[in-house]
Design a protein around this nucleic acid. Structure first.
Lengths: 244, 244
DNA sequence: ATTGGACAAACTGCATGCACTAATCGACAA
DNA sequence: TTGTCGATTAGTGCATGCAGTTTGTCCAAT
């Protein structure tokens, strides 16, 4: 089963890259895109579970699969290594990083702490405009809950959290939060498919927003921490059944 | 003036790489070291101020300077980009990242928040052994203060903070802390040369340790936050005069 | 049967070359 | 004089080739 899906996904990715190459070869190459696409494709292979932790990512095979040379493959692997999805050792093949349940838990914990800090600082520091925008976005997303638009809500969700990070007015903190968030993405992907999760997510957001609008730092902090913790348990359930 | 120092440093780095290459060419190549050395060398160029923010890092010049081909240079730049020291855009030269005073402040703030979280969790979670080791190390470092051993104390200081990160028993949190710490290293380098800083650092550590041994999370958190904040102001003073 | 070593195949690390992009400079026109 | 439009040069992105290393396999010796 794994092999089949792997091949299927591989061919899909190859097609994407290939068509992109053909289409843009004489148009808007805007190069660098090749590597970027490869990063996404390989990341998807890992995220979707087509490649298992510990599996070798040898450069030649990947180069053949994606119909590019080894150079961009190497660069892509470098970036994936930096982002933590794969591991590299000198003179050895890159391998898909093992994410133990324990490590996953620690990532969610770090995420919760980061969001808590961001929420607190947001409550203290957001400008009037930022508060208004946060509130507006949040209110606007209510209808997505009732119409069960998981994908749209997901987009809104990202926007919401990004506003939280920016609102702390601490560039580096936002960077750490975004980075951790990206690294958790694979394990959080399907959380909104849990029945009722959408509505509860909205309610949790509501508590955070209310606290921030009141400039109540501690309350915002606690609400954000709780929110992420719930996402954590909701997601690890999926991680268990989905990837293992 | 810039050009002179740049050339001087360049030749030094080139020599390092060159001699390394010659020495290891037939011995213990342990490859991957080439790129790693380049990363350090270029990072040093940036950290020491030999290259100014916004300055171009063109691959060919670097390849010539270090007497290697462009391939490892590109990989080194990739890694430096991932670590945040340089920025890259498609089809443009990599440039030294601008670290504004504001961004620097945000990094220190993030560091303070991270350490605060780690200290709190350490107070709550450290095993008996970890507490004992932390205390022992801290107590042992007292004599370094009186004998004014800045370098040794610096080494101890790193060990102390690393124990704090590990003590939180959250792998990813420790990773974030270490990463941020590494990124701040250039700006914190000379803090212990401020008269009396050593003794005060020890006292601040003492407050943290005491709180952790008492399993008093909030106190540990506050103490760690305060400690980093003080380091921040002590260091930015140097950043102002040293790098600008 | 098991273990040790040697050989072979596969793969990584780096160098070099080519195609395409971007930027700078000069020329021409307004 | 200035603004705009080519052309040339410098530099990036990717492909390919070679050297060195690792790993897997096979044979021999214990």
């Amino acid at each position: 089963m794994v092999d089949i899906s792997e091949q299927a996904i591989t061919s899909v990715c190859t097609m994407q890259i290939r068509s992109a190459k053909l289409a843009r070869k004489k148009e808007i190459i805007r190069s660098g895109t090749t590597v970027e696409q490869m990063v996404r494709s390989i990341a998807d292979l890992i995220i979707t579970g087509a490649m298992h932790p510990g599996e070798r990512l040898d450069e030649i095979s990947l180069a053949n699969r994606f119909e590019v040379s080894r150079t961009p493959v190497r660069e892509a692997l470098s970036q994936l290594c930096a982002s933590g999805l794969v591991c590299r050792q000198p003179n050895k093949s890159a391998i898909v990083t093992n994410v133990t349940q324990k490590h996953l838990a620690s990532m969610f914990e770090a995420m919760a702490e980061l969001e808590a800090v961001c929420a607190r600082l947001s409550a203290e520091r957001m400008t009037v405009d930022e508060r208004r925008m946060l509130d507006a976005e949040h209110t606007a997303s209510a209808r997505l809950v009732y119409s069960r638009c998981e994908d749209e809500y997901e987009a809104h969700n990202i926007e919401f959290h990004t506003r939280l990070y920016r609102g702390a007015h601490s560039e580096h903190l936002a960077e750490l939060a975004n980075q951790t968030r990206a690294r958790l993405a694979p394990f959080r992907r399907a959380q909104f498919r849990i029945p009722g999760r959408l509505a509860r997510s909205y309610q949790e957001h509501d508590v955070v927003v209310t606290a921030i609008l009141r400039a109540d730092g501690p309350a915002a902090s606690l609400a954000a921490y709780t929110h992420v913790s719930i996402v954590s348990t909701a997601s690890t359930v999926f991680a268990d059944t989905g990837t293992d």
